[in-house]
Computed example of a mutant assay.
Amino acid sequence: MLRIGLFLLTNIAVLVLAGIVMNLLGLNGILASNGVDLDVGGLLAFCAVFGFIGSFVSLFLSKFMAKRAMGVHMIEQPQTADERWLLDTVKELADKAGIGMPEVGIFPAPESNAFATGWNRNESLVAVSEGLLHRFSREEVRAVLGHEIGHVANGDMITLSLIQGVVNTFVMFFARLVGFFVDRVILKNEEGLGIGYYITSIVMDIVFGFIAMFIVAWFSRRREFRADEAGANLAGTNAMIGALARLKAESEAGAEVHMPSSMRAFGISGNSMAMMLSSHPPLADRILALQNRAA
């Protein structure tokens, strides 16, 4: 969840910034032809360029942002037995998955959590929380690491960026259509693009960007099942089921282990809105999928 959450927040920020820059530099002139007509084809192509730029900037910044946001302590020269085991295990699983050795880190958090990110399957980052490392058995930690390495091996961040690029294109496109409508039809401005257009388009970038998160979250939930399968292949089906079951038990007793819903590693509980925005499907569904696969 951390990996997707950081990516989405970065992407929305880049998207809004791109919209503001477009307005300030007067690049929205492509909207109008002879001051009155809307150049829909040109606008769509223009938004596609900026939409994909925003998505891939988010992708390239993902590892940097994750390190800073989570306060990740990078393991370069292991100082403890746990750090040595973590490095060796990630190396073993990465070799088995056929990817380059990821950077490895630990971040200070009491909840059981982990994430993997990076723009390239051979230039990735895998990090676990102190809570996960200290409370889970090594077999369970190994399964969680297998799941995260599965994301890297499956190229999930690249695929997510492509989908986000498409989504960004239409977010910017429809935001500017609404801005144009407000400016020309409601405010009756017929001379270029007025203040109504600029304000409305920026506001709609945020509104449509939030709505687009539902689409990206839906896709992300589908990818989690594949990452679970990868974790089962790399670390063993029983170990993967055991790790998910442990996470489920901790999430159900969240207050006891200080696990806020917004930071749970592999799932989120709450109302239907939270479920639709969740980047991970319910843990019970994931456990059942692995059990059916094993059977």
Rank of each mutant, 00 (worst) to 15 (best):
17 L>N: 11
19 G>K: 03
19 G>L: 04
20 I>Q: 00
22 M>Q: 13
23 N>F: 09
23 N>A: 14
26 G>A: 09
29 G>N: 12
29 G>Y: 09
31 L>M: 15
32 A>K: 12
32 A>T: 12
39 D>T: 13
40 V>D: 02
41 G>I: 14
42 G>A: 01
43 L>V: 11
44 L>R: 10
44 L>N: 04
45 A>C: 05
48 A>S: 12
49 V>E: 11
49 V>Q: 10
50 F>M: 14
51 G>H: 11
56 F>P: 05
60 F>C: 03
60 F>Y: 15
62 S>W: 00
66 A>M: 13
66 A>L: 04
72 V>Q: 08
75 I>P: 02
76 E>L: 11
76 E>A: 12
76 E>C: 06
76 E>I: 11
77 Q>H: 10
77 Q>I: 05
78 P>N: 03
79 Q>V: 05
81 A>F: 01
81 A>Q: 09
82 D>E: 14
83 E>M: 05
85 W>A: 03
87 L>C: 13
91 K>D: 15
93 L>G: 10
94 A>C: 08
95 D>A: 14
96 K>P: 07
99 I>S: 07
100 G>M: 06
102 P>Q: 01
103 E>G: 13
103 E>D: 15
104 V>M: 01
106 I>N: 09
107 F>M: 12
110 P>M: 03
112 S>L: 15
113 N>D: 14
114 A>P: 12
118 G>I: 09
118 G>W: 05
119 W>R: 10
119 W>Q: 12
120 N>K: 07
124 S>G: 10
126 V>P: 05
126 V>H: 00
126 V>S: 06
127 A>P: 00
127 A>I: 08
128 V>M: 09
130 E>Y: 07
133 L>D: 11
135 R>V: 11
140 E>I: 09
141 V>L: 13
144 V>T: 08
145 L>E: 06
146 G>L: 09
147 H>A: 02
147 H>M: 02
147 H>N: 02
147 H>V: 02
151 H>Y: 08
